[in-house]
């Protein structure tokens, strides 16, 4: 792999204005700028015709092909756009005579979790957790686990706020070994479970994602009593208090399905809203309303398909 270093440098810094043309299908994409970089490849904003899209390119043919497989499989999950829509797959013969694999997908506009919560406040926590769990339930039911679920792989698109998945490289068939993970969100790293793909693996990461919003610098893993440390970190955050019991159960792997966690979360949200409405009014009400609207919407979409 050290051998690949020189090529890698080139594929991670394609100058804007470069035309990438597919070797097999011949479609051409104009590179605008780099928008992300991961273990597998580099993502660029690109243009074809009048359309803007995201283009991921890498010399790792096998990993790229697996990602494409996943994106194709997600398309078939009942009437839902779980990942970004896949538009094209091809190879590019670069000027350095190396062949790279690329795929083109829908460009998702949005802000990061951190940005969103800084701007909109913690009152959106419950709603976004419910949304994320809703999507995960669909994914799990289709036989997949997200795997590398982390803040970097999520965006919040606007009006109304909706969590979108932007990188599905870690998506793994249930029962297999998790394909890709990030230590901080990985229950194996924390000594709190295996790396076998099962719904509870994702639910652990969900808890960490919402904890991380309040600890952007993260924190170190202790040698012992690791669950205790995570519990303490949750307890210290006032905004997380209503959800603490649910988050703790997710961390210790008590939920076997996403729906189960979502149900308990909704119970907490609605009972809390009823109390807070009489006291403070506005914020709580609007959040409950969004969740109500969102629930109706998801019922409607599931009826349609």
């Amino acid at each position: 792999m050290a051998m690949n270093r020189a090529w890698k440098k080139q594929v991670t810094s394609i100058p804007s204005g470069t035309q990438i043309q597919g070797k097999f299908k011949g479609n051409s994409y104009l590179i605008k700028r780099k928008i992300g970089e991961g273990a597998i490849g580099t993502v660029y904003l690109c243009q074809f015709g009048k359309q803007t899209a995201a283009l991921k390119i890498s010399e790792k043919q096998t990993s790229m092909t697996l990602e494409v497989n996943v994106l194709k499989a997600l398309k078939q999950v009942r009437g839902n756009l779980l990942g970004p829509a896949l538009l094209d797959v091809d190879d590019w013969l670069a000027p350095n005579r190396q062949t790279y694999t690329f795929y083109v997908m829908e460009y998702v506009h949005g802000e990061s979790m951190q940005q969103f919560f800084r701007k909109n406040g913690a009152s959106w926590l419950g709603l976004l957790m419910v949304q994320l769990l809703e999507d995960l339930e669909k994914l799990h039911k289709a036989g997949w686990v997200f795997g590398d679920l982390k803040t970097d792989n999520l965006l919040i698109s606007q009006a109304p706020p909706k969590i979108r998945w932007i990188d599905v490289g870690g998506v793994t068939q249930i029962g297999r070994a998790i394909k890709e993970y990030t230590e901080f969100y990985d229950r194996g790293y924390w000594g709190l479970g295996s790396r076998r793909a099962e719904p509870s693996y994702d639910l652990f990461s969900v808890a960490i994602i919402f904890l991380e919003i309040f600890y952007p610098q993260r924190f170190a893993r202790p040698e012992t009593k690791r669950a205790n440390l995570l519990f303490k970190k949750i307890d210290k955050v006032k905004a997380l208090q209503p959800y603490a019991p649910v988050l703790k159960k997710a961390i210790t792997g008590k939920y076997t399905t996403s729906a189960e966690m979502q149900r308990e979360l909704k119970q907490i949200i609605f009972s809390r809203k009823n109390q807070s409405r009489s006291k403070t009014g506005k914020i709580g009400l609007s959040e409950a309303m969004w969740i109500f609207l969102f629930s109706i919407l998801s019922i409607l979409t599931s009826l349609c398909f």
Binding site: G175, R176, A177, I178, G188, S194, R195, A197
Partner: peptide, 10 residues
């Protein structure tokens, strides 16, 4: 860590 990862395989 390697053993955790590999032992998640079948």
């Amino acid at each position: 860590d390697l053993s955790i990862s590999l032992n998640a395989r079948a």
